[in-house]
Design a protein around this nucleic acid. Structure first.
Ligand SMILES: [Zn+2]
Ligand SMILES: [Zn+2]
Ligand SMILES: [Zn+2]
Ligand SMILES: [Zn+2]
Lengths: 131, 131
DNA sequence: ATCGCGGCGTAATGTCGTAACATAAGCGTC
DNA sequence: GACGCTTATGTTACGACATTACGCCGCGAT
């Protein structure tokens, strides 16, 4: 359990669930798990998630409409994050690739496109599940 | 307007709206536009969209929960498609990059990850809107 | 003919996300 | 302390996106 000292109660609860989960969780799945802690409305979860995303402690998987805890210490620093999502077991691998980042950056520069954020998600089967 | 001879009525109607649109459309936005043509339920649109996606005539933008007509003749052939989405005007550019494709393929190969599909979406401002 | 299959129509429901409004706690200033 | 400001919180209601379940029809294959 990492520190995350400056988190509020709801933020801690949500992050804790994400860290304990073995697969991405939807906001409503998190909410269901936290009803016994007193949470009752989706917005309480979404607000916590927003902050966690801002701090880089969690990520949203757009192709799943779900969330995961960040798997790497300082991934806020790496320019671009990619996710490989196993459709069988739900496991998510998080990685980054400088060359890919550079190629996309080059494309954007050529086109005059100002990037605000990028999502890259690979769906498939992890090594264990592909066997 | 290209031929698409083998499409059913609903599929043609949906594709037609996507091609005429200047920005991605949600399934419900398409439905609203097609009420006068007799469509009444979301499922009619989603079924048509499923087929169009299969045929490579349309794409789903995961980060928007919306759909666009394919902008390139044979993009089914290119290994991986990336989208640059302008958050101001909604314009979508569709492109592919062999190096990026190769890098991701290499990563997957190293990890033993079997890819079924990949989504890559860049959000930001197009040249015109960034000015 | 009749079987299977793909497309279609409809209703109901499920899942994801936000708007609007009210409350409470912390904190610097006067 | 009283005031105003900011941030987190709680609650209700609603909007937006997507699917399940069921049945009908048309058409080609057996
Ligand atoms: Zn991360
Ligand atoms: Zn797996
Ligand atoms: Zn395309
Ligand atoms: Zn633009």
């Amino acid at each position: 359990m990492t520190a995350h000292a400056d988190l509020t109660r709801n933020q801690s609860l949500v992050l804790d669930r994400l860290e304990k989960a073995e697969a991405p969780l939807s906001a409503y799945a998190i909410l269901d798990q936290l009803r016994e802690e007193g949470l009752r409305a989706p917005l309480q979860v979404y607000r916590a998630l927003d902050k966690l995303l801002d701090m880089g402690l969690a990520h949203r998987l757009e192709s799943l409409n779900a969330f995961v805890a960040c798997a790497r210490p300082n991934c806020h620093a790496s320019g671009l994050i990619a996710f490989a999502i196993c459709e069988k077991c739900g496991q998510v691998a998080e990685f980054s690739d400088d060359i890919v980042h550079e190629r996309l950056h080059d494309w954007a520069h050529r086109e005059g496109f100002v990037v605000s954020r990028t999502t890259m998600e690979i769906r498939g089967s992890c090594r264990a599940c592909a066997a």
